[in-house]
Design a protein around this nucleic acid. Structure first.
Lengths: 156, 156
DNA sequence: AACTTTTTTGCGATTTTCGTAAAAAAGCTA
DNA sequence: TAGCTTTTTTACGAAAATCGCAAAAAAGTT
């Protein structure tokens, strides 16, 4: 995989604020040709550096309840539990962690009922989960998923 | 704000797997005109239902360390702490929660040194943080941020 | 049923993307 | 460093997508 340079970072920075910016526009901003932007984006996608996606606003879709759940798993069953969890649409994040909990997941629900049902019926049926520590999200202050720091892009 | 219907959900579902799908292509898949897709997307963006963004792969950008940190804040200072944290580029998620921790944040770093520096120098300088409980991410199984369940989109 | 409002469609003009070959730049070797 | 190879950028016509907007259709109201 080729090294990512300043031009690449600049492209990523522009796309993280609007993933649909035309290549011609990016080219104009960076002072290079459209073809350059095109081939670089193709390479970055090829190398799996980034993907074009959308970020939906949960509230606007009626998703009023989000939770972070710390899970304790039976020794040796962590991977298997994670794989089961991956299948669930309500679960948006799953990670293995050092610390109090073996797995930490983040999930979203239309309402409290759905959350309760999830914990009582869905989680309890997954073999290998020993304990679940639920934290209800009361307010979200920030949520981003693209990592190109402003100070890493030279101002041109 | 207008109600979101099946066509809107279908549009969102397509865009969540490729945020750069041409409107003509979406129109073709749904059997409506390009103009319909265009006006609906304009409305959804207008209403703040979703945004076009990119998702970067942390590892590919040299971000090898991610952590979830549970924070305990001094009573009445939670909002103020959250606002300070928002300014930090390393912090990708901040939420207020019920449960053991008042705030839970997720942050990313190039290496362990940066994480240590973050906890010791950055966090410690924020007025109102009483305790920080760090969990290191060992492996990520899933991470998505668009909520349109497959079963909510009628197969056409 | 008649009227109003909203949504969809159609289509030409404009803009963007795509394919590709030539030019330029960057690397490499002796 | 000159000469050669590989990679990247540029240029530009063809194809495709987006845009602007007016007419038609559909949905909602009284």
């Amino acid at each position: 995989m080729k090294k990512i340079d300043q031009i690449d970072r600049h492209i990523l920075q522009i796309l993280q604020s609007d993933g649909r910016t035309p290549y011609t526009e990016i080219a104009h901003q960076l002072g290079v040709s459209e073809g350059t932007i095109r081939s670089r984006i193709a390479r970055l996608l090829q190398d799996g550096v980034f993907e074009f996606v959308i970020q939906t606003n949960p509230e606007k879709l009626g998703v009023h309840v989000q939770a972070i759940i710390g899970l304790t798993t039976k020794l040796g069953m962590q991977k298997q539990v994670a794989e089961q969890l991956c299948k669930l649409d309500e679960v948006r994040f799953i990670g293995a962690f050092s610390g109090k909990h073996d797995l930490i997941i983040r999930a979203w629900f239309y309402d409290n009922d759905e959350l309760i049902t999830f914990v009582n019926e869905r989680l309890s049926q997954i073999e290998g989960i020993v304990a679940a520590d639920v934290s209800l999200e009361l307010k979200q202050y920030k949520d981003s998923f693209s990592f190109v720091r402003d100070d890493e892009v030279a101002i041109s």
